[in-house]
Design a protein around this nucleic acid. Structure first.
Length: 1060
RNA sequence: GGGCCCGUAGCUUAGCCUGGUGGAGCGUUCGGCUGAUAACCGAAAGGUCCUGCGUUCGAAUCGCAGCGGGCCCA
């Protein structure tokens, strides 16, 4: 049996009930079980980092995933829905360090690495639990009991396996490179871990003395004084022009400066040189080999040993001095220049950001603290041309926000250069991108520019690098699985693959030495890079891998271009030479209402929790999916969430509306499927069913194209425009009839078909609401129906209901009704008052056909007694025409006779002139004096004159006139409806049930109106379910008595109710 | 500084690929409806289509340059 539902849509109750239902019935597992033999759809979840709380972006991400998985599942696919968790890495280490009050790595060593990673592990597992609950609250159906976790040994093995393969293919390299280095975390960090923020730094111009010359300098600019002790060269752009300037100082001293030609004004200003003169112009390439003396040779002994000279480099820009200071130990470009010209890689800075012994005078100092001292030293030697501060964007450690430095260190690299072509080929040919440019432009550009990937980190909480090296003979062993290690190391028991346990494993080398593990752990990005096969248990097991890999689908935000899209592709190409995923949907970010990033410091963060609390999970889901294209950024606007909520609420109201009638009538949809009642259906029933099929097609197409916003908008548009605003309005009277006739059954069946289909169509997006509708509409009727809406097949358009012409005709009628309302408003006639007719001048035959076809709908909705459809282009004969002579044309044409012509035109009359000019462009007109002139169409201006009581409104379908002139009958009906409305209103006020009987008394003093109503009392009585209705008793009486003013007419109405 | 995306009414957006009178929703104002009713419907006002230049008979749409926002990189 169908059941009535609560008056109000209460999301909390719905979600609570449905969650309980899902839990009790194990609906999730049964749904997956039901599709296990379907077409495989291998989805891989990009693992969120276990921070403990999800934000709007994470929520949106999972909602997209869940919607697509539910959609695929309803289409019969056996979906893989393993959620993932990213649980290693510096962010957690930093959190744990904060918690334990640690300052540096030394504190960790003292605490014990074993204890430390235990803390990290507990943290990650606890947060994973918290976040799982948050995702569940969003209605996300994933295999929450069996997620993949990067900290599991089985998972770690996948990373090891890739490294072993990379090693075998010579893609693994160890070497000295310049890396981003966090001096606090004392580790290398990946490009992707560098966060750019504004920062104040020194800005100094330094004079390098040219060797063997007096007062001749090469001038460079830098923001890092601390790198001057590491300087080994200066670089110029080979194609740029440089000048030697003779510059006179304020103190009269004359210097010669080598700078870029364009830099002269700037440098003269910075160095406060009152006058100067250009001595010589040189091309950059001609400057190569120009030697200079190290500025800090005295302070840094090693500097005195090295040669310093000018070299060309293409990357040099002409900003500042046009000459760049080169410290190969502290910059990537510098390092490359150094390598190219065989310069020493001098790097007297240690891992904690302090100078080493090699730095001479500065040894032991923190580099940033040394800045001022170095500046002073340069100043004292008169080598400082200028000194200032600059605010610029500079890289910081993404976790601890410390300003990074660049250090040349020994690291492990994945040689991306060797596999880049394969990666690009996969992007171009093997992966389907949504939107297309995500792959063809954005990701492609990133990969094309990618450098070797530094995968080693000098930290603790991560996947240990599986490389063992013999300190004596340098022989190396790389392990791909735990078992391999156990066997080779001849271990007896099991072993955990984390530090410090794995560090204790040593191997006997062929040379007799003892091989020890490289102390590094992996870059945490390398963890998730192996997710596509680690989630399948590979290499521990291979069956699932062979069956499913590579992924059919992944979807992540556009930041993952540099992240997961890249890391996965790199790892898979390195290991298997194949792409790990076949299609990608790249989605956007959630921004605040102004399109700004949500951040704690800006105080503009909105959490998913808040939204669920206020509007529920379904509304949050529907909002985030519908308000922008997946790949565009989503501006979070509360007002718009409220609008979506309103739409969902309308769906609830629409769904609720017929239930009391259906329940009362014991309507059984199984006995009366819509298909069987087509013969009894009115045109509007067939119309809504046709629109329903179009909507099914539209939503399906949108989902297949991954344009989820279009799917939601199509669905909502149908619910709002077609169902709520039109169909429900049309059929309301039919649901009130008490007779059990086929006409009413047709409405029930139509509504039922529509609602069940809507429940299925909205299932991927609003899993709770759709389920509650389905449970009532379907499960309450048919025990054999699938347990959950989510176990149903995705609806396909039913051909039998498709009728494109009917849809087109109804569209026209709606247009005309709208124009009619507009005209009514102009005529000042409320809809409640009938009008004698509407007159339409159709723009084309289709409009005429539609109005004839759907005449009943048109009459009903316009509350008109008749409709006249004129022929296309026909003028309505009741319309008066007013003509005005166009003096601005008549004047110049007829000069002094203009007045006479004008008079003659007025004499001829508007109507007859209009008839003529409707047919031809010009006519002969006789004037009063007997002469004849030629009148052209542009000499007269016609205006339609609408008769009294009629109003017109233009529409796409043509002019629509309403004839609002009253007749006695119309007036009588108008007042009758006014009275009915008032009594209904009072019934409502007394909280009477629909079928309660009343007695009513209506007192109207106005004789005219009273007479108009007199013959209508039985009609009124029927409409308001009054057993007795008395017109004009001595006094109104009843439980409720009210005074009404209707169009200036006073009425007193009293009613009494009694329970049916 | 570079790559990609976005810029349309007060706000959120459709239209842009394939050039031809810019269309919705929210909000505002006015009105209507009244057994979906703390709901619903209609109308009006509101636009330098980010700016400039170009192509074209014609540009929101195509091209170039710039400005602003986002992501990524340097």
């Amino acid at each position: 049996m169908l059941q009535e539902i609560p008056e109000k849509y209460e999301t909390k109750k719905v979600e609570e009930q449905i969650n309980q239902f899902w839990n009790e019935t194990d609906a999730y597992h049964k749904t997956r079980e039901g599709r296990k033999n379907g077409k495989k759809f291998f989805f891989v979840d990009g693992p969120p980092y276990t921070t403990g709380h999800i934000h709007m972006g994470t929520a949106w991400n999972k909602v997209i995933k869940d919607s697509i998985l539910r959609y695929r599942s309803m289409n019969g696919d056996a979906v893989t829905d393993t959620p993932g968790w990213d649980m290693h890495g510096l962010p957690i280490e930093v959190k744990v360090e904060e918690k334990l009050g640690f300052q540096s790595k030394k504190d960790i060593e003292t605490f014990g690495v074993g204890n430390f990673i235990q803390e990290c592990k507990s943290f990650a597992i606890e947060k994973k639990g918290d976040m799982t609950n948050q995702f569940k609250a969003l209605g996300i159906w994933m295999d929450w009991d069996n997620p993949y976790m990067t900290l599991k040994d089985e998972y770690i093995e996948a990373a090891w396996w890739v490294i072993q393969k990379a090693h075998e293919k010579s893609l693994l390299e160890e070497g000295k490179r310049v890396v981003n280095w966090c001096p606090r975390c004392e580790t290398a960090i990946a490009d992707s871990e560098v966060e750019y923020m504004d920062r104040d730094d020194d800005s100094i111009y330094v004079k390098f003395p040219v060797k063997g010359e007096q007062d001749f300098y090469v001038v460079i600019w830098t923001t890092t004084p601390w790198t001057i002790p590491s300087n080994v060269a200066a670089a110029v752009h080979p194609d740029a022009e440089y000048v030697i300037v003779k510059a006179t100082r304020e103190d009269g001293k004359v210097e010669r400066l080598l700078i870029g030609k364009e830099s002269v004004p700037l440098i003269m200003k910075r160095g406060k040189y009152p006058s100067h003169e250009i001595l010589e112009t040189k091309k950059g390439s001609d400057l190569q080999g120009l030697e200079y003396t190290a500025p800090l040779a005295a302070e840094v002994p090693a500097q005195a040993e090295m040669a310093h000279a000018v070299y060309p480099a293409d990357y040099v820009s002409l900003d500042n001095t046009g000459i760049v200071h080169i410290a190969p130990g502290h910059g990537l470009d510098d390092f490359n220049v150094g390598s190219k010209f065989g310069l020493p890689i001098f790097c007297p800075v240690g891992s904690n950001g302090s100078y080493t012994k090699e730095a001479g005078k500065y040894a032991g100092m923190n580099i940033r603290e040394a800045n001022d001292i170095i500046i002073e030293d340069l100043k004292s030697k008169d080598l400082l041309l200028s000194q200032g501060k600059i605010n610029h964007r500079y890289g910081h450690c993404w976790r601890c926000k410390t300003a990074i430095i660049y250090l040349a260190t020994e690291q492990w690299f994945l040689d991306v250069g060797k596999i880049k072509d394969e990666m690009l080929n996969a992007i171009d040919n093997e992966i389907e991108w949504t939107p297309d440019w995500a792959g063809s432009a954005r990701f492609r550009d990133w990969v094309a520019d990618a450098r070797d990937w530094c995968i080693s980190r000098q930290r603790y909480w991560g996947i240990p690098v599986p490389i063992w090296t013999c300190p004596d003979c340098k022989k190396r062993a790389v392990f791909g699985t735990k078992q391999e290690l156990i066997t080779k190391a001849q271990l007896t028991g099991d072993i955990e693959l984390h530090r410090p346990y794995v560090d204790e494993v040593t191997l006997e080398c062929e040379c007799g030495g003892k091989m020890v593990r490289t102390k590094d752990v992996f870059d945490v990005w390398f963890d998730s890079a192996v997710a596509s096969f680690a989630t399948l248990g590979f290499p521990g097991r291979t069956d699932l891998f062979e069956e499913k890999w590579p992924a059919d689908f992944i979807t992540e935000g556009h930041d993952q271009t540099r992240g997961w899209f890249y890391s996965q592709l790199g790892a898979s190409i390195a290991a298997f030479g194949k792409t790990p995923y076949k299609s990608v949907l790249m989605h956007g970010f959630t921004m605040d209402k102004d399109g700004k990033k949500m951040s704690k410091s800006l105080g503009n963060v909105v959490t998913p929790d808040e939204v669920i609390e206020k509007y529920g999970a379904d509304v949050l889901r529907a909002y985030s999916l519908s308000s922008s294209a997946p790949w565009d950024d989503l501006k979070f606007v509360w007002d718009d969430v409220a609008t979506v909520n309103r739409t969902v609420n309308i769906l609830w109201n629409v769904y609720k509306f017929p239930l009391p009638y259906m329940v009362l009538d014991n309507f059984n949809p199984l006995e009366h499927p819509a298909e069987s009642l087509i013969g009894s259906m009115r045109e509007e029933d067939k119309w809504i069913l046709s629109r329903l099929q179009s909507t099914v097609a539209e939503v399906t197409e949108a989902m297949d194209e991954k344009t989820l916003h279009k799917a939601l908008r199509g669905l909502f548009n149908f619910i709002l425009e077609d169902l709520s605003r039109w169909y429900i309005q049309l059929i309301r009277p039919r649901t009130w009839t008490e007779a059990n006739d086929p006409d009413k059954l047709a409405v029930y069946a139509t509504l039922y078909e529509t609602y069940v289909t809507i429940a299925k169509l909205s299932a991927p997006f609003m899993p709770y609401l759709s389920e509650t509708m389905y449970q009532n509409l379907v499960k309450n009727i048919d025990e054999n129906a699938p347990l959950s809406v989510h176990m149903n097949d995705w609806p396909a358009p039913k051909e039998i209901f498709v009728n494109a012409e009917l849809e087109e005709h109804m569209e026209i009628v709606r247009n005309v009704v709208e124009a009619s309302s507009n005209a009514r408003q102009k005529a000042g006639r409320k809809l409640r008052w009938p009008i004698s007719r509407i007159v339409v001048v159709p723009t084309d035959e289709a409009v005429a056909a539609a109005l004839t076809h759907l005449r009943d709908v048109l009459l009903e909705q316009t509350n008109a007694k008749d409709v006249e459809v004129l022929a296309v282009g026909e003028a309505w004969k009741d319309l008066d025409v007013q003509m005005t002579p166009n003096q601005s044309v008549l004047g110049p044409t007829f000069k002094q006779d203009a007045k006479k012509v004008s008079d003659a035109l007025i004499e001829a009359g508007a109507k007859s002139l209009k008839e003529v000019f409707d047919r031809v462009e010009e006519m002969e007109l006789s004037l009063a004096d007997g002469t004849t002139v030629t009148i052209t169409a542009d000499m007269v201006i016609f205006e339609e004159l609408i008769p009294e009581g009629i109003a017109g409104s233009d529409s796409d379908c043509g002019m629509v006139y309403v004839d609002a002139k009253l007749t006695k009958e119309l007036e009588s009906e108008g007042y009758t409806r006014e009275v009915i409305r008032r009594i209904q209103d009072m019934r409502k006020e007394l909280n009477l049930a629909v079928d309660d009987q009343i007695t009513a008394a209506v007192l109207i003093k106005d004789q005219h109106v009273s007479d108009l109503i007199k013959d209508m009392t039985s009609l009124i009585a029927t409409e308001v379910r009054a057993g007795e209705l008395i017109l004009n008793p001595d006094a109104a009486s009843g439980d409720l008595i009210k005074e009404w003013d209707i169009e200036g007419i006073q009425m007193t109405i009293g009613i009494s109710g009694k329970k049916a």
